[in-house]
Amino acid sequence: MTIADTARTMEPNRTSSWVPVCRVDDLEVERGAAALIEGDQLALFLLHDGSIHAVQQRDPYSGAYVMSRGIVGSRGDAPTVASPMFKQVFDLRTGTCLDTLGKERHDLRTWPVAVEHGIVHIRKDPR
């Protein structure tokens, strides 16, 4: 979920379960950052177009919590991250595994992201 489609439709407000995580300035373009939110580990990615994506930090293929350390890129139109462990490639928007490298497909869980006053928020309940 990107800012473009969440910020307008799901404006964070005080009553929803949106959790503030960090400042947008804390993120580096195309280099992920891990976040620890109520015991869950997430990987946040700020892309070149300013959109921010949140996926699970756990790499489903290795079980290690490393997704934020993968290389960000693109496959066709899809913004992607490649697991730093065994290099499976995932669509950052949906969490879909685009290149399983011959393994069974495992996708990443994603979270809605929104930005308000320069603060990155995550909607905590799973989509």
Partner: peptide, 12 residues
Amino acid sequence: SFVNAPTTPDPS
């Protein structure tokens, strides 16, 4: 380790 908890070890 975490953008919102820079010195907290990876709990896994």
